[in-house]
């Protein structure tokens, strides 16, 4: 099988203008992955599926990863001239920078026809708040249908072009995305919005309103 670097070069030659980056994996498994840009993701996926030399006909696993915003503290040594006129001093300087967070979707592809794989594709969202859309690969591999719905449900990534993007494991009225790293469990599970609230409100219509409570009788002396 081609290495990931060869595959990247092949994709870049085939799709000029596309951005394909190798994300290397330092673990002993050495399963490196390819980061794709949104504009070419579906074309590249179709190419990977249909090209006779590749034939990645099965997308085995789809999952999301949450990478929250990170604060990175870097310490650098800076040479500062001494204002008193002495020899320049070496001062340790700490700078803090923030690395923006994003959500990532990972696809594991295998070829049943040629018995090779895995090829791992990654798609990243712009941030974790409002730019959370990535192109859906369900039109390319049917197996993405439920798994992308799961990523949408648990991570909050929206898939453009997905035929039926609804929550799948959590209920429809649920608001948050529980697999995000900063998800906080509600203090009171009873409060959590459930379909029962609406149902109970509807059910109230069927019952006559209770008469106003009578004033409490005066306590006997």
């Amino acid at each position: 099988m081609e290495t990931v670097e060869q595959l990247r070069d092949r994709l870049l030659a085939r799709f000029p203008g596309a951005s394909v980056t190798v994300i290397s994996n330092p673990s002993p498994s050495a399963q490196h992955s390819l980061l794709l840009d949104h504009a070419h993701a579906r074309e590249i996926a179709l190419y990977l599926r249909d090209e006779p030399a590749l034939k990645f006909d099965q997308c085995s696993n789809v999952t999301g990863i949450d990478w929250p915003e990170k604060e990175i503290t870097e310490t650098t040594k800076v040479t500062v001239p001494d204002p008193a006129g002495g020899p320049p001093k070496v001062v340790a300087q700490t700078t803090k920078r923030r690395e923006p967070g994003y959500l990532e979707v990972v696809y594991h592809l295998y070829s049943l026809a040629l018995r090779q794989g895995p090829i791992i594709l990654r798609l990243r969202t712009g941030n974790r708040a409002d730019a959370v859309a990535v192109p859906s690969l369900t039109p390319v591999w049917r197996s993405c249908e439920f798994q992308e719905r799961e990523v949408f449900d648990l991570f909050g990534v929206t898939f453009e072009g997905h035929p039926d993007l609804r929550r799948i494991l959590m209920w429809d009225g649920f608001k948050d995305h529980p697999m995000r790293r900063d998800y906080a469990e509600p203090d009171d599970y009873e409060w959590e919005p459930t379909p029962h609230g609406d149902v109970l409100a509807k059910a109230k219509k069927h019952y006559p309103e209770k008469p106003a409570a009578e004033p409490a009788k005066e306590a006997k002396p």
């Binding site: 673990s27 498994s29 399963q31 696993n61 990972v106 594991h108």
Partner: peptide
């Protein structure tokens, strides 16, 4: 504590391909 990295391992379970994807 495994070193940083990721791995996908799978076997042929009785129901089909059962796999685990881990990031350390």
């Amino acid at each position: 504590r495994p070193k940083a990295g990721e791995a996908y391992g799978r076997i042929e379970g009785p129901k089909g391909e059962i796999g685990f994807y881990l990031i350390s």
